[in-house]
Design a protein around this nucleic acid. Structure first.
Lengths: 354, 354
DNA sequence: CTGTTAGCGCTTTCAA
DNA sequence: TTGAAAGCGCTAACAG
């Protein structure tokens, strides 16, 4: 009835539990005959070691915790996918926990991981939440993701949102646009803030007037912004949105208002969600390799678990992907296989340590 | 240095470990004074119980395993989200494991869950994989998802793909279309198979000729199918695609070929991915509430863990969502707030037990 | 090379 | 109401 344990195996194989353990872990000396007896017993009893018990005695759970603010949309599934792939390769399990939008919940989630995981990947775009969560890890190794508030001397991976925004604006300026508006993300979001500041800086540097419209990272808010722009007879000739979904909302609104993109208004987004390459015109955006960030976070976490002094923050630089929403309508581009017929080119460097 | 354990707390509070345990679990009799002493010690030492140890002694890990074939795309993130939400409400943790496309891997994943989880949610559209994985659970409660091969007398949730396909075809016929093609999904995928069989059945019943084109659930394959259709001068006036991504590919191809949708060719997809409501015309499709399936799976799993004899398969009936890709172009529809301006209406029942 | 045994940190009888 | 002690299933010293 109940699954066999190591003692059952030992008994059946007529050896000690220690020998069974040694055989199963490939550690320590064992004769072939012992090994065979053990394997037979294991087979016969369908024995599978109890990993919980093993964790307790080795104080290694071979599991890492992933704490996310949310789980909605492709951003998070890509992130988890990247982490999971890397974890699986290394024999680690993943325990995920999401929807931690307030500090108390996040801290509770971190605490509840104690005794379950060997380390934590912690993401939170809200400064306070990240701090609170990071404060209660009790010596557990942690890698923080997109957490502007992370101390510079602890493991963290952050996207260079500011730099990406600057690149977006410069791209638009290079296209000859000058009345460039920005649709900002939520106030309390550190990424939104960094993108806004990059926009402001680039505009100021170019001696252009800034125009900021509030948004909340949702498509609907981008749409509202676009409608308002169109209605107000505003002579905006380009928009840099705080993320792709808002950029797409703007494009839809412009389309409805009979304004052409990119001819009348060029649009740039941020993130390169899959949708960005599927709409027409394709959306120029700042691409982040999300899965790769996940992979990298896991690798660094395991290094930290192994006691390596891996501190410092790693900066991921988004890559400008130029598509139809800002490309020169005169230029004729080749068609890519099976994909909408606008070109995809890239600029600016790849991610790198700093 | 090392986190405090229950003995440290007991010592500091000058009580026995048993009392500490009783206080922390709210179980058993304790005087207020003991409770206070314990709480103070807990506070002072920042004590957090070691859940691994607790699991070992209670043989309850408060964790469920989720085994998925993949993690790519919004389908899976929605599913995990639904499961996670429900799990969190009930104090359960989630350990996810993906990329199990072959039977051996899936079985290994299931085995490696032993001693870590109290039950398993297992999804696999490949019959063989599902069988293999389900075969090695060793008495662990399991709920199977979208697994046509699941025995009818064990907990499972399956989507009525066949019925959905029939509804799609009937909808197209009701629109007056008769030359209806089907873009099928991969051969070895049970869902693709069921959708195909629904299509064939509905066509046969209506006395119409079937036309099946092979696809693989990817947008590119839908695009190829659409191009071929357009090139061959085929007089197809409607397409039912095996999933939304292929349907979108078809729409793009038709658009490129200068054929109007829905006037020339009406298109229906399956799944209702977020994209379906964002493209223009909006894609008519069969909607499945993925997060709700996840939630339901978790609830049933916990019931099974609690020893309830919850057997039988639950059938989820997809809901036909009619959008612009099949709607009557003459009819004028109201605009929804912040959304593209085509109407969304629904038909056919919601999910229910059978 | 193998077996005995003492934990890992917690829960839970069973006595006191 | 409390405490002592026996496990939960496994690993890892330590003896043999």
């Amino acid at each position: 009835m109940k699954p066999a344990n190591i003692r059952d195996v030992a008994q059946r194989a007529e050896v000690s539990v220690a020998s069974v353990s040694r055989v199963l872990n490939g550690a320590g000396p064992v004769t072939d005959v012992t090994r065979k007896k053990v394997m037979e017993a294991v087979e016969a009893l369908q024995y599978v070691p109890h990993s919980g018990a093993r964790s307790l005695s080795t104080s290694r759970s071979q599991t890492v915790g992933v704490i996310l603010p949310d789980l909605y949309g492709e951003f998070f599934s890509e992130l988890i996918r990247g982490i999971d792939l890397a974890a699986r390769e290394r024999g680690y399990h993943l325990i995920v926990s999401s929807s931690h939008d307030d500090a108390g919940e996040a801290a509770a989630a971190v605490r509840s991981m104690r005794g379950r995981v060997d380390g934590l990947i912690l993401m939170s775009p809200h400064a306070a939440v990240g701090q609170a969560a990071a404060g209660v890890t009790g010596g557990l190794p942690v890698v923080r993701l997109n957490d502007g508030a992370a101390e510079a001397d602890r493991p963290a991976i952050v996207v260079d949102n500011h730099g990406g925004a600057v690149a977006a604006v410069k791209h638009l300026i290079a296209l000859g646009r000058s009345r460039i508006a920005h649709i900002a993300g939520p106030n309390d979001n550190m990424e939104a803030e960094a993108r806004l500041s990059g926009y402001l800086e680039a505009m100021a540097e170019a001696g252009l007037d800034a125009r900021v419209i509030e948004g909340d990272f949702d498509m609907a808010s981008g749409r509202r912004a676009g409608l308002e722009m169109a209605r107000s007879g505003d002579s905006v000739d380009a928009v840099f949105a705080g993320n792709d979904m808002m950029a797409l909302g703007v494009m839809l609104a412009l389309q409805d208002a009979g304004r052409l993109c990119p001819e009348d208004v060029a649009v740039v987004g941020f993130d390169d969600v899959p949708l960005a390459s599927l709409v027409r015109p394709g959306l120029t955006t700042l691409r982040i390799d999300i899965a790769e960030i996940g992979r990298s976070a896991l690798v660094r976490l395991l290094a930290a678990i192994d006691g390596q002094q891996d501190t410092g923050r790693q900066i991921v630089r988004p890559e400008l992907v130029i598509r139809g929403s800002t490309s020169d309508p005169d230029a004729q581009r080749p068609t890519t296989d099976g994909r909408p017929s606008f070109a995809t080119t890239t600029a600016q460097g790849d991610k790198q340590d700093v």
